[in-house]
Amino acid sequence: MEIKELKWERRLVWDVVSDEEKSRIFEFADDYKKFLSANKTEREVVETFVSELKAHGFRDISEGGDKVFMVNRGKALAAVAFGEKPLSEGVRIVASHIDVPRIDMKPVPLYEDTGIAMMDTHYYGGIKKFHWVARPLAIHGVVVKEDGRVVKVVFGESPDEPVLTIEDLLPHLARKAQYGKKIEEAIPGEKLNLIVGSIPLPDKENKDRVKLAILKLLNDKYGIVEEDFISAEIEIVPA
């Protein structure tokens, strides 16, 4: 064996895969991008997985069968396909988490400050806070009404809805407030409040007219009122 054959050289994958394999790679990536765009919360992922499982012959565990699934509170899922060999010969297990770092909405979050409607938040997981400012955001989640009905909320994704965002300082204002700090301190977590509106209701007799305008939008679309936020689970996600 020649000396040069002893050494392994790293090669780009694009130099070794066939055209057919490249097509499959891009097809997989395109499907994955669509999945990520359509499923931004645990609940949405579970709903999609349940639809896929049913399409492949799985049934709810209460119905029995050899291909079953079980949903836990709408946010976790287990699926089982029973084999022909005894359990003593082993099982194949695939496990994955579907929760992600995100920003959650606090109970009764909506308030108005200096003519801007905002929502109070707290972050979940080890987010990089600078990723979440000055970019379009949306709210996804569920609201449990007084009569027990569960209302699905997706707000900020449609072109005819407000563009939601979390503010950041302009460069000339950030010089003293941010530039000298460590990156995890430059944008405090308690400042990650969501801007949801700035156009007030026309009735000047009302107080907090911008907040009321947002409440009216939510009521017109989802039939919810401010008190419903107490029994809501709403997450802030990239739009």
Rank of each mutant, 00 (worst) to 15 (best):
K145Q: 10
F82M: 09
K221D: 06
E112L: 03
M118S: 11
L173S: 07
E184H: 12
P86D: 10
E84D: 15
L6M: 13
R135F: 05
I93T: 03
K4I: 08
K176F: 14
R209I: 07
E47S: 03
I139K: 06
E167P: 00
I166H: 02
V237T: 14
R10C: 08
K152V: 14
P202T: 05
E9T: 13
I93F: 15
I93L: 15
A81L: 14
E89T: 01
W14A: 13
K129C: 04
E42M: 02
P238G: 11
E167I: 01
I61V: 12
A76Q: 08
K85M: 12
G189A: 15
G125A: 09
H122K: 10
G83Q: 10
K54S: 05
E20F: 00
A177I: 08
G64I: 10
P109V: 13
F82E: 14
A186T: 07
T114I: 08
E5K: 04
N193E: 06
K204R: 06
A117H: 09
T48N: 10
L12I: 00
V16M: 12
T48L: 04
V150S: 10
G156M: 09
P136R: 07
D99M: 06
V163A: 09
E167N: 08
D30G: 00
S158F: 11
A95H: 06
V68G: 07
R11T: 05
N193Q: 11
D30A: 04
E227W: 01
D203W: 14
V144W: 09
T114M: 15
N206V: 13
P202A: 09
K181G: 04
G223Y: 10
S51T: 09
E5D: 15
K4G: 00
A232N: 12
P171G: 04
K207C: 01
I234L: 15
I25N: 01
G57N: 03
D228M: 03
Y111M: 07
S231L: 05
E157P: 00
K85G: 04
K207M: 06
H172T: 04
Y32D: 01
V45A: 07
F155I: 01
V17D: 03
Y179R: 04
P162H: 11
L170P: 00
F49R: 01
E190H: 15
I103S: 08
E184K: 10
I139W: 03
V210T: 13
L164R: 04
G65P: 02
V16A: 08
I61N: 06
E21R: 01
E235N: 11
H97M: 12
I25W: 15
P109T: 14
E190W: 12
W132R: 00
E235Y: 11
F155G: 00
V142W: 15
V108S: 13
V151S: 07
K85W: 08
E5C: 00
H172Q: 09
A95S: 14
T48K: 10
P238H: 12
I234A: 06
E167A: 15
K211T: 10
M70H: 12
L170S: 05
E27F: 01
R149V: 11
F130P: 00
G189M: 05
A79S: 04
D104Y: 13
A186C: 07
S37E: 13
A76M: 11
